[in-house]
Design a protein around this nucleic acid. Structure first.
Lengths: 123, 123
DNA sequence: TTGATGATTCTATAATCATGGAAATATGGA
DNA sequence: TCCATATTTCCATGATTATAGAATCATCAA
C-alpha cells in the first residue's frame, strides 16, 4: 500500500460520523445497509450522510450496490486489512518486531498463513 | 481503546508530514531522533514540525525526552499496537473473521499465541 | 404519467487544520 | 554573564473539511 492511499484511508476513518458509519456497516457485513437505514440508525441528515459515504467510498472502505430505490453500502474488508498491514509493517521496522503481538481476534488456525506477502520492502 | 481515542490517533496519522515523521521515528526506534534532525531529514520548518510533533504527542503516538539542548522524540509502539488492535476488532465483528489473515511481517513462531486478549466485547 | 420515496448534488456557512516567519523560551559552554 | 543553538509559542493567512437545507435526480407502484 502506498503512503498516499494510507493517508486517504486514515483520514476517512478519522471522523466520528464516518467511523460510526463504517462500524455500523461492519456489523451488517457482508450484505450492508441501505443509506436510509444508516441515516436512521445514526441520526444523520441525508446530505451529511451522503457526504460521508462519498468519503468512505473514495477511500475504498465501502462499496455500494443499488437494489431498487435503495443503495446498499457494505464494508470492503480487504482495504481495512491492507491498512492494518500497512500499519503493522510500519509500526516497527528495522528494530526487530517489538510490536504487533500477532494475537488477532479469532484463532489463527485454518488457512491463515498463505494469504499475502506483507512487508513489501522499502516504502 | 475508546472510539474517541482511535479517532485522535487516526487523525494524527492522516497527514502527510506527520505520517512521515512517525515513520522516520520508527526507523530510529527506540532511541528516537532530535527535533532538529527530523526537521532536517524531512525538510520541514521548525514551527511546522513543532506543530506536528505536538499533534503526534497529543495522540500519544510519540514521546519526548530532553537531553541537553536536544529533545528526542520516539515512537510509542504500544499505542500503534492498540490502534491496530482496535481496527482488527472492528474490521469484522459478528461475521466470523473474514479479515485479518494474521500474516504479520515476520514469522509468528515464538511466543505468539498467548500475549493478549484483544476483542474487548461491545464497544 | 403521477406520486411517493430514496439518494445525491448544490450551495452557503462555520469550524478546524496546516503553514511558516518572527519572537520568545530553554540549555549548555565559554 | 553572554552567546550560540535547540525548540516552542505566537500570530496571521490560506486551505480544507463538516454541516445541512433545498433542489434535483432516480426508481418503483399504481
Amino acid at each position: 500500500m502506498q503512503n498516499k492511499q494510507a493517508i486517504t484511508i486514515l483520514a476517512a476513518l478519522a471522523q466520528e460520523s464516518r467511523l460510526a458509519v463504517y462500524r455500523l456497516l461492519i456489523e451488517h457485513a457482508p450484505e450492508g445497509l441501505a443509506a436510509s437505514a444508516i441515516a436512521e440508525q445514526l441520526g444523520l441528515p441525508n446530505a451529511t450522510l451522503s457526504f460521508h459515504l462519498k468519503e468512505l467510498s473514495h477511500a475504498g472502505l465501502v462499496s455500494s450496490r443499488q437494489s431498487g430505490r435503495f443503495i446498499y453500502y457494505a464494508p470492503v474488508i480487504e482495504v481495512m486489512n491492507d491498512l492494518i498491514g500497512y500499519l503493522t509493517d510500519h509500526c516497527c521496522s528495522q528494530s526487530g518486531g517489538s510490536c504487533a503481538p500477532a494475537t488477532r481476534k479469532s484463532a489463527p488456525a485454518k488457512g491463515v498463513a498463505a494469504t499475502g506477502k506483507r512487508r513489501s520492502g522499502s516504502a
